[in-house]
Amino acid sequence: MPTHRSFSPKYRTKKQSRPRFTMEAFYLAIIGAGVVGYFGVEVADMSAPVPAFAVGCTIKGNVSINSGERIYHVPGQEYYDATRISPQYGEKWFCSEAEARAAGWRRARR
Rank of each mutant, 00 (worst) to 15 (best):
Y79T: 03
T22R: 06
N66Y: 13
R109I: 09
K60M: 03
V74W: 01
G32D: 03
Y72M: 12
I85H: 07
P19N: 00
A103C: 07
W105V: 00
S67Y: 07
K60N: 01
G104A: 14
H73L: 11
G104L: 14
F94Y: 07
G56K: 02
L28G: 00
S86G: 06
S96L: 14
R109L: 08
V55A: 12
A33H: 05
S64P: 01
S6D: 15
G32F: 03
G37L: 10
Y38P: 00
A102S: 15
E69L: 14
K60Q: 01
G40P: 02
A25I: 04
D45E: 15
R109Q: 11
R84P: 12
Y27Q: 07
M23Y: 01
R20D: 03
Q77Y: 08
A82W: 14
V50H: 01
F26E: 05
R12E: 02
A33D: 09
D81W: 10
R70G: 01
Q77G: 06
V50D: 02
V43K: 09
C57F: 07
I85S: 05
Y27V: 12
D45I: 10
H73Q: 13
I71L: 06
F53P: 00
A108G: 10
V74G: 02
I65Y: 15
C57K: 13
F7W: 08
P9R: 05
T3L: 06
G56A: 14
V43G: 03
G40S: 14
A44P: 00
V36D: 08
E97F: 04
Y79L: 04
R18K: 07
S86Q: 12
S96P: 10
I71K: 00
K14Q: 09
M1T: 08
P49C: 05
M1K: 12
G34A: 05
